[in-house]
Design a binder for these strands. Sequence first.
DNA 1: CGGTATCCCCGCCGATACTG
DNA 2: CAGTATCGGCGGGGATACCG
Lengths: 110, 110
Amino acid sequence: MAVNDILARVGDKWSVRVVLALTDGSQRFNQLRRDIPGVSQRMLTRTLRGLERDGLVSRTVTPSVPPRVDYALTALGRSLCDPVARLGNWAIENIGKVEAARAVFDGEQD
Amino acid sequence: MAVNDILARVGDKWSVRVVLALTDGSQRFNQLRRDIPGVSQRMLTRTLRGLERDGLVSRTVTPSVPPRVDYALTALGRSLCDPVARLGNWAIENIGKVEAARAVFDGEQD
DNA sequence: CGGTATCCCCGCCGATACTG
DNA sequence: CAGTATCGGCGGGGATACCG
């Protein structure tokens, strides 16, 4: 199903991080890289390309030395912020319960 | 980050499908399998185990012939329905825009 | 019916090196 | 600074076969 396809992008962990990182305004490539711990250059590039392809993020090149590229959420991307933030908030609020459940489940395995 | 870990589960496409399929009430294994097009037995089993481990889904075995196993959302799982549904609704509402953006982006590649 | 076990392919992803 | 290119490991995920 096609919706699955969208959820795959939207549910992707790096995509979520990028969208959240761009919520407060546009960012340059290496700034995003610093803002998102653990992301490799390759994955950040790929994630940004995917988001750009899906019309969620815009890419603005300023030809200068050194070159400057700014990424920002499009209107469509901003409309995604709220649902993503809700999911993120759910995760933050319930991480304790989930980890407790995992500990119980893993402990039950004799 | 641990929240990433939760989002990985929550954003997983099969997990999303299972949660949505269980929103209306408990389901048996093969019923879920029919409700979720494209899922293999292996992946359904794995997804359900993961959700059970995270305390989102409960598994109830009725020893009979033939055996019967019912899956249902826990309270924690139900609390996840709303955020997930919002994300799903966003996907449904905006799939047209995303696909249009993809067509433009792919067409631009000379 | 509701699984588990095995095989195997493929795409994700990090690491590293190179480019404009 | 902002990428692309390439390699290699690892895990996702389908196909198939078998079990209680």
